[in-house]
Design a protein around this nucleic acid. Structure first.
Length: 324
DNA sequence: CATCAGGGCCCTG
DNA sequence: CAGGGCCCTGAT
């Protein structure tokens, strides 16, 4: 017996605002990551992005339209909600969008240092203006991280679809229908066995325990922690281990770190840098030596490049490493 | 048909 | 700190 408590809402336009990111800003590279598995939480087209956005108890829809150029960036942002928002909330919402999309982040030091790098320079120039964005908040990302664990992409997609269908909220705006990850409180009304019936296996327990843990912490104050403290706090969350913590730190918290390289990524990295080893330790040594504290940016760029190429024209060896 | 490895993590000894 | 167990699915 399912408890159906998902919201289904049609939203209307309540606010339109122009955003001026810090140049250089490449819209498409800064709102879409083709290496992420497809979810019905976001819709992307060239120059356009729609996403569900739960912030401070309110579930809104947001549309971004690219109206600028890399050196003169400009985004038209439209917010959709049930009813008019008050000014304070609007300001907070845009401050949050600024954080999640790292709109004002300055990467000039990085470009100066590595734009001419023999290995990565070409790609860094090609992706100039890519900001390190993450549309999701901590809770949503936690759920995604659990869905990714110990599963192939295909299985992850299946589990995501069925859990969203049963417990996700849906919104309609601007002719687009999107899901949103449920409110954490609502998942606690669901029993572990109900979740298990969606074929998520032992992850059912993780969803629940991680939700309980999330409700005890405050992701906004965690942003002030340094890398070590933040890592320690995140690892306390049930279901978060060394692999997930790195994704969460670089994604949700925009920390510039690269601590562990999972084997499947090691294979990709080795190919990208042209190494003769797929040993994560060896790869890490090289990255440290050559790129120091910018190693995660460099790898981020190389990884983005191969993902975009793969998106447009399937690449054989990527196909093998990212089996659907 | 059986077996096994996946884009890990928890728990135990 | 190493290693077993865990859910399901598709490949062999």
């Amino acid at each position: 017996m399912f408890i159906v408590n998902s919201e289904k809402m049609k939203l209307k336009q309540v606010l339109k605002k122009t955003i001026y990111p810090k140049a250089p800003y490449n819209f498409d590279y800064s709102v879409h990551n083709p290496s992420h598995y497809p979810t019905p939480l976001v819709k992307y087209e060239r120059g356009r992005l729609w996403f569900s956005f739960r912030f401070k108890e309110k579930l809104a829809g947001v549309k971004f339209i690219d109206k600028g150029e890399i050196d003169k960036p400009k985004i038209e942002a439209t917010v959709y909600y049930r009813n008019k928002l008050d000014k304070t909330f609007e300001d907070e919402l845009f401050r949050e969008l600024d954080y999640r999309f790292q709109l004002q982040e300055d990467y000039s030091e990085f470009y100066k240092k590595f734009e001419k790098d023999k290995i990565a320079g070409k790609v860094i120039r090609k992706f100039k203006g890519m900001h390190n964005f993450c549309i999701k908040g901590l809770y949503e990302y936690l759920m995604i991280a659990i869905l990714l664990q110990n599963a192939t992409i295909k299985r992850t997609v299946q589990m995501t679809d069925s859990i969203l269908k049963n417990y996700g909220d849906t919104i309609n705006f601007d002719g687009v229908k999107l899901y949103s990850i449920w409110k954490p409180e609502n998942l606690l009304k669901v029993s572990e066995s109900e979740l298990r019936s969606l074929k998520v296996g032992y992850r059912a327990k993780s969803f629940i325990r991680a939700t309980e843990d999330y409700l005890k912490i405050n992701e906004y104050s965690m942003r002030k922690l340094d890398n070590l403290e933040l890592r320690k706090e995140l690892l306390k969350i049930y279901g978060v281990g060394p692999a997930s913590v790195d994704y969460i730190m670089t994604g949700v918290f925009h920390r510039n770190i690269l601590n562990t390289i999972p084997p499947w990524e090691a294979k990709i990295y080795s190919k990208l840098i042209g190494l003769n080893t797929t040993n994560p330790k060896k790869i890490m040594e090289l990255l440290d030596k050559r790129y120091g504290r910018y190693k995660s940016y460099v790898m981020g760029h190389l990884f983005m490049d191969i993902s975009w190429k793969h998106k447009h024209k399937r690449i054989d060896w990527m196909e093998k490493l990212l089996p659907y």
